[in-house]
Design a protein around this nucleic acid. Structure first.
Lengths: 348, 348
DNA sequence: CTGAAAGCGCTTACAG
DNA sequence: CTGAAAGCGCTTACAG
């Protein structure tokens, strides 16, 4: 007599997950054939293919990644590496947007994202050891400052990687995806001038970051276009933080009280600048038109709502993942520059 | 004649990583002994131990995780799972704080964190398949709303997990770490009353989240303590978003114009409430004292700076990791409730 | 304390 | 198109 089928799985702990062996037995083929089906079903007869798929469904078989990874010498995983002091990035809304986009894009390939941070020397060592050991197939790198020590380490270990934003001082040796910072800045400054402003100041980002450099260059190029002489007293520098933007705007207001427009190199800094202007009794956009950069969520909650330059974060993350997977597959992929978009709200 | 030693590694690609076999050969012992050293060096003679360690250093040997994981049937990795619509969490500063803390805490154990999101049905299926296949050893769960379908799936698959915040409707079946929401709320409301306010209103969180329920309960309990009759018109509900807080405050101002204090169940909502009060021409804390909850970075940039209840995020993430690792190791760990701290700034 | 050996669950030439 | 077999790099009883 046969026992009644147990409800669910038996009481004993040892639920052994079905293996390729079990599938082969049920399907009545060899393990090699099962594996071939798993690899895409090439060189497998329709009958075998169907039998194997049925067995897989019946058993609820899922490949054991460790076994597969061991033999293929791949990890089928990718690291998302933050190389700045953690504080900075975790407060930056651009970061979470990017992280979310990369997670989603990798998810579609069924590739998990390992989040790693390398903020201090101890972490850096641990991460390099981990990555150099080949525990991931590639690295999505988030680092903006020149002279990042991690990049050298990763290059030496010949780990596929793609950076978000152009890594300064690498002379084209590392692939990257970036928004067109310079054109975006130019669009904004043209918009400011075309709306009738004549004393356009700017809060630039750090000059050891690509965004800091390029957005300032865009500002200067448009001044040239319109035959406006560049004036040192109309530029101040911030560190991309809200407080930094506020202080830079204070300095600008002191050095050039007559300014009637302000291009700020990030939304977070623009939010700070808005506070400074408010304190100084200047209305926006009445007295001073203000333009930001990023189109971060914060741009919608400032008052007035911020006119800004939209960075295409969704596409940036998608392209980063595409480039990295191509690189892992052995293809050489060119760097990608994505267009920005001027978003006009109330502040300018 | 011997060739001069090549600089760096040879030109040919095939840099094969050293294995336990190479280490054994260099150290003059068997692979088993090398493995024992790797496992902690028990039952290994001092001489062997030293020889093996020297060989490891010389070769730059790093264990192959795939091989190890295959035989130990462990993944030595942990998932950080977001089960809400992604938008919500990625905008919530509490989330990034928690993510950062967990990454750091796991990093100390050399365990990578896999970031996974289960916002829609398709993602949910993919994630359940991945987790149920045993691809991670455990799950750090971030989910606040009652009736989260993922929890059932994970429980069925018997995957170790610990939740951030008490999962409603699970009757104690899943371990969690949380701040003491009720006590935190009570501290704040007492502070409001003790500072001389008599019409204390509250913006509560969603009532299908533990923070929404508990913080409102704390508010009511303190009212009782002081013999103040509970007044329906002094409570409004928000969804933890900035806009939600602003709208809730608007409603409160309409229903109870005489309110002179406001306890808001999150800093983000408090920021919105501040905007509503400003629009209504009420000064803070002059006309209305405002208290928040979280002590998020935003609490420092509101004007006036926000008096709030600090959630101990660092400890929360550390405890989550500790509990999860214990659970993976087979130990049963009790749930952990951590004390909050009243942070007095300018708004109350 | 230590070595030889089995085995974890896959993939992939190799013959046929 | 398919099976038998080797091998990926480890860990872990088992003898000794």
């Amino acid at each position: 007599m046969t026992e009644p089928a147990p409800q669910g799985r038996p009481a004993g702990k040892p639920r052994r997950a079905p293996t390729i062996h079990d599938v082969a037995a049920v399907a009545g083929v060899s393990r090699g054939t099962v594996s071939r089906v798993l690899q895409g079903g090439h060189n497998v007869s329709p009958a075998s293919l169907e039998a194997v798929n049925a067995a897989i469904g019946k058993l609820g078989y899922v490949v054991n990644r460790h076994a597969r990874n061991l033999v293929t010498q791949r990890s089928n995983s990718v690291a998302f590496l933050l190389t700045e002091p953690q504080e900075r990035f975790f407060e930056d809304p651009n970061f979470t947007t990017l992280l979310r986009g990369c997670t989603a894009a990798l998810g579609e390939h069924d590739i998990p994202l390992l989040l790693m941070t390398a903020g201090d020397e101890a972490e850096r060592r641990r991460v390099v050891r981990y990555l150099a050991a080949g525990h991931v197939d590639g690295v999505l790198l988030v680092s903006s400052h020149r002279g990042n020590p991690m990049i050298e380490h990763l290059r030496e270990a010949e780990i596929p990687m793609v950076s978000c934003g152009k890594p300064l001082g690498q002379r084209g040796r590392v692939a990257y995806v970036a928004a067109d910072d310079r054109e975006g800045a130019k669009d904004m400054v043209r918009h400011l001038i075309e709306s009738g402003r004549s004393r356009v100041a700017t809060v630039a980002g750090p000059q050891d970051t690509p965004g800091g450099v390029e957005r300032l260059l865009g500002y200067r190029e448009v001044l040239d276009e319109y035959g406006i002489t560049f004036d040192e007293s109309l530029v101040a520098y911030g560190d991309y933080s809200r407080a930094g933007g506020e202080q830079a705007a204070d300095r600008l207001l002191a050095a050039a009280p007559g300014l009637d427009a302000l291009f700020v190199a990030s939304d977070l800094m623009a939010d700070g600048a808005l506070a400074a202007l408010d304190r100084a009794g200047r209305s926006v956009p009445g007295d001073v038109a203000v333009g930001g950069f990023d189109d971060s969520p914060a741009a919608l909650t400032t008052r007035p709502a911020l006119t800004t330059v939209r960075q295409p974060w969704d596409r940036i993350s998608q392209e980063m993942v595409r480039l990295l997977l191509a690189q892992i597959a052995g293809e050489t992929q060119p760097t990608v520059i994505l267009p920005t978009e001027l978003v006009i709200r109330e502040s300018a």
